[in-house]
Nucleic acid binder design. Structure first.
Lengths: 192, 192
DNA sequence: GCCATGTTGGAACGATCGGTGCAAGATGTG
DNA sequence: CACATCTTGCACCGATCGTTCCAACATGGC
């Protein structure tokens, strides 16, 4: 007990994010969040508000952690649209291979649970996905893709990202996931 | 009330399947299952057993409904591996476009909730995915794909299937989904 | 040192969770 | 008509859900 917080707020938020990531919103009970953050119920509510608010802060924390990684990967310069896609998907593969974080991706898990989320959380999830889509499209254009091609490839890269998350949740091997990413990154090499 | 069941068992199972499909296992409460099936708690438990058993029967019911559709689509004959992939993904697109069923796909929603499922349900979900993978691989080989190519393309088609489910849950338009499927089906047309 | 401020653990809240028990009622068989 | 069998509606169970409240306590400013 103290007049000052006895824990690191950001570290606690990281723990909460992992709980939502692993279990999904519905199965992320307050007890699990208490255990995952290491702090008590009172501190949890006093610091982050209710479960829905904590979830949204976890989403934001997730974006703060991984969007810069995608940004760096997309920054390039890249020789071709395929190189952009490969670089983007490699970030996803690396995160999935990291044993320190849960399987899949928080955004994907949250997207599949859309009906269980309040509208505010829904639009936030959708916003994060759209942001990634826009980042991809810009990077693809910078790598020489045409307007329509960039839009198509951005969508397909996003789709591949989601599929990697689902397959990893289902227990597919890292080898299989790498194959999916590699094939997707070769999509631009089609005949004209 | 009666000495004979007052409802159609298969119709009730269809309702339960839709509840699990829409809400996912965790958010599919008994009350929602009662409402979705139209029968009472006693009849529900007496006919299908507990929630986990009902979930597994819903999974089986899902496979019985849609695997034949995939079977027919894959039966061919197909002129190329790309045609196989397009035919398969079209079944998925048609299901997603059907307003009478929930968004996405029951298998994908269940896969992302793996940690919330008992081991029996987990292995059943994984088994259904593997079955689709094997069906795809066989059809691709029959369409002239090499052994390694067939394995790769089967995996990618499965991945695309999952991505379509996730994106549709997140509210993406049918047009976007069709684009993803179309691009994926053109993967085999790469240069050698 | 004293008090206002803020934090913490833990008890407790009503609501809902999955699951069970039972009495009432309808059918098929004799 | 009488009985065994099965189904159904409803009440109820303990456990867990998200959330709130409060007393106990440590700190910073006076």
């Amino acid at each position: 007990m103290a007049g000052r917080k006895q824990f690191d707020v950001d570290e606690a938020l990281r723990g909460a994010m992992h709980v939502f990531w692993r279990w999904g919103y519905s199965e992320a009970s307050i007890d699990r969040l208490v255990e995952g953050t290491g702090l008590g119920r009172s501190s949890l509510y006093g610091t982050f508000g209710d479960k829905s608010a904590l979830f949204r802060q976890s989403l934001q924390r997730y974006a703060q952690t991984y969007h810069p990684q995608y940004d760096r990967a997309l920054a390039g310069p890249h020789a071709s649209p395929g190189a952009v896609m490969a670089a983007y998907l490699q970030v996803t593969l690396n995160r999935i291979a990291d044993p320190a974080v849960p399987d899949g991706c928080l955004i994907t898990v949250s997207a599949t649970q859309f009906p269980a989320l309040d509208v505010e959380s829904q639009s936030m999830v959708r916003g994060l996905i759209d942001a990634l889509r826009a980042m991809l499209e810009a990077a693809l254009r910078a790598a020489g893709a045409g307007e329509r091609e960039a839009a198509e490839l951005a969508l397909c890269t996003l789709a591949t990202n989601k599929s990697l998350a689902v397959l990893s949740r289902a227990g597919f091997s890292g080898e299989d996931l790498a194959t999916v990413a590699a094939v997707a990154a070769r999509i631009p090499e089609r005949r004209p």
